[in-house]
């Protein structure tokens, strides 16, 4: 036999699709479980898995489920290209490959006692959702909790039911805005960064967790700084091409950082110099 005989960290484990739900026109959520249905895959909010579609490819996707329910792996994915379009056609019972969980996590456990501000752009809500779950399941340990979420249009809003449910809570502030909207929309219109100046958190104690396109994160940081947040209280989740997830393929390098291993969640302090440069 001419193939590797040793267990290789690049060999995925099979997981079975339990359900696939269309969230929006181009975004869907898959729920996976181990083949025997009972194994757990514990993870921390902010971590990601490498999802493998046989014969097609493997991609990094954040875990968007509840960390307290590690038997079910939840991934919310936007179809944009080869692998994600193939994933969208999965059906209950299908088997895909999973490697992970990889990467750093949102500092939820470190920031108890603080106000927490989540700022999400588009699909960026998915990697933040496990942190929301964590905070909400220990709600009494945190100060004010604010979610600011922006999408392109009302039709692109993810987890709509859940957002409505969260918005009804008295211990949570949820603000949603869309870039553009037609008449039935009564909510905010404009970019998510516009929401920051008015939102009710104490900049002296607040910690911000930000996930979205890189430009959105850059502008979000500026607004948060204007409100008085210090760099070490701002956390971002970075995105880079990834082929291994384990610091060996070199693809995800961002200056000295391997985003797969040293990130994807970074304190802004750590990456601010890199973000100030182009094409790094």
């Amino acid at each position: 036999m001419n193939t590797l005989t040793v267990e290789h960290p690049m060999i995925p484990k099979p997981y079975r699709v339990q359900s696939l739900r269309q969230e929006t026109l181009d975004t869907f959520t898959v729920e996976l479980s181990s083949i025997n249905g009972t194994s757990e895959l514990p993870f921390n909010p902010g971590q990601f898995n490498m999802l493998y579609m046989v014969g097609i490819g493997e991609i990094p996707i954040s875990i968007s489920g509840n960390p307290d329910e590690p038997r079910t792996l939840v991934h919310t994915t936007r179809s944009v290209g080869t692998v994600t379009k193939a994933m969208r056609k999965l059906r209950r019972g299908d088997v895909i490959g999973v490697r992970g969980p990889f990467g750093t996590n949102w500092p939820v456990d470190l920031v108890q006692g603080s106000d927490v501000v989540f700022v999400a752009g588009g699909i960026g809500l998915a990697p933040l959702r496990p942190a929301m779950y964590r905070v909400l399941s220990h709600r009494e340990k945190f100060g004010k909790v604010v979610l600011l979420y922006g999408t392109r249009s009302p039709a692109d809003i993810l987890y709509r039911k859940e957002l409505e449910h969260w918005r009804a809570r008295f211990d949570l502030e949820v603000y949603v805005t869309v870039d553009r909207a037609l008449r039935p929309w009564r909510g905010n219109v404009g970019v998510v960064t516009n929401l920051i100046s008015k939102s009710p958190f104490d900049p002296m104690s607040a910690v911000a967790m930000v996930c979205g396109p890189e430009v959105m994160m850059r502008f979000t940081v500026l607004e948060l700084q204007k409100r008085g947040l210090v760099n070490s209280s701002i956390y971002l989740s970075m995105e880079r091409n990834m082929k291994c997830g384990i610091g060996l393929c070199g693809h995800c390098q961002f200056g000295p950082e391997f985003v797969c291993r040293d990130g994807p969640v970074f304190s802004y302090d750590r990456v601010k110099d890199l973000l100030a440069k182009w094409e790094i």
Binding site: M1, L4, I11, P14, V54, G55, G93, V95, G97
Partner: peptide
């Protein structure tokens, strides 16, 4: 370097290395 070999099955894939 071959990392692994697999066959496609009706529900997905099976790693064979065979």
């Amino acid at each position: 370097l071959t990392l692994f070999k697999a066959v496609k099955t009706s529900d997905g894939f099976r790693i064979t290395n065979e």
